[in-house]
């Protein structure tokens, strides 16, 4: 009888201990999932947020100063209006409403006689230029904005609603940071090679030249251009 009680007690104790150990083990398994990679990822997020917060904080401070100027009854009206005009001018440059110039890159795309330039090739170069941080881009004489379409329609490519012959050459121009020219040109050359060697373009005879330019002029886009589609935009009143 005594032996039986002892066995049962021993079994119970072992089972309880096993349960506790299994629970601890599970906890450790979860804890072990934190790795150096997790920590690095977290560190990258921290750096990102620290930079964003510092920038946002500076921006708010500047905004506060600007509001103080606007609300200052003692300030001269012309000083205040000048600051509003400067703000409007910055927005106009940003929107693509001003003709601009500076150092940049020019890409010339031509095809063999009888072949037609594909819209996807132009879009690819434009997207790569955007990814490289180009501040202004044009194709032929069309300034590109966020909503500019580049779409083939029969024998023309439509850009901002204007048609350009697909058999004639296209010039893509962009204002880019000249200190990054080496990287940008190497990157764009890789894109050029991928287009030239793309099996679906075999027979089109693409000739693509990419050159850094000391001075590139990018035309303005008119406020009335259909590219802006302002009639579709209703201001959000909750803002």
């Amino acid at each position: 009888m005594k032996a039986k009680i002892a066995r049962t007690t021993l079994l119970t104790v072992i089972c309880v201990l096993l349960g506790i150990l299994i629970a601890l083990q599970m906890k450790n398994v979860n804890a072990d999932q934190v790795t150096d990679a997790n920590l690095e990822e977290l560190q990258a997020k921290l750096i990102d947020y620290a930079a964003k917060n510092a920038e946002l904080s500076d921006r708010n401070a500047e905004l506060y100063q600007y509001i103080s100027l606007l609300e200052d009854d003692q300030a001269s009206g012309s000083v205040q209006i000048d600051s509003i005009l400067r703000e409007k001018e910055r927005a106009a440059i940003f929107a693509g409403l001003r003709e601009v110039r500076n150092a940049g890159i020019e890409i010339t795309v031509t095809v063999a006689e009888g072949a037609m330039i594909r819209d996807s090739v132009l879009r690819q170069f434009v997207n790569e230029l955007r990814a490289l941080g180009a501040q202004a881009i044009s194709i032929n004489s069309e300034r590109l904005v966020a909503t500019s379409e580049i779409r083939a329609s029969g024998s023309v490519i439509l850009i901002n609603g204007n048609g350009y012959n697909r058999q004639a050459g296209f010039q893509i121009r962009a204002i880019t940071d000249p200190t990054k020219d080496a990287f940008n040109l190497e990157y764009l050359d890789a894109v050029r090679k991928s287009v030239i060697h793309d099996p679906q373009f075999t027979g089109d005879g693409y000739q693509i030249q990419i050159s850094p330019m000391p001075d590139v002029t990018i035309p303005a886009l008119s406020e009335d251009s259909i590219a802006f589609k302002i009639d579709l935009l209703m201001p959000d009143n909750q803002e």
Binding site: K88, A91, A92, F94, A95, L97, A146, E223, F228, I230, L233, M234, P235, D236, Q238, E239
Partner: peptide
């Protein structure tokens, strides 16, 4: 100009 630049929220 602000609307064209994308500086205002739109619906």
């Amino acid at each position: 100009v602000r609307a064209l630049a994308g500086f205002t929220a739109v619906t």
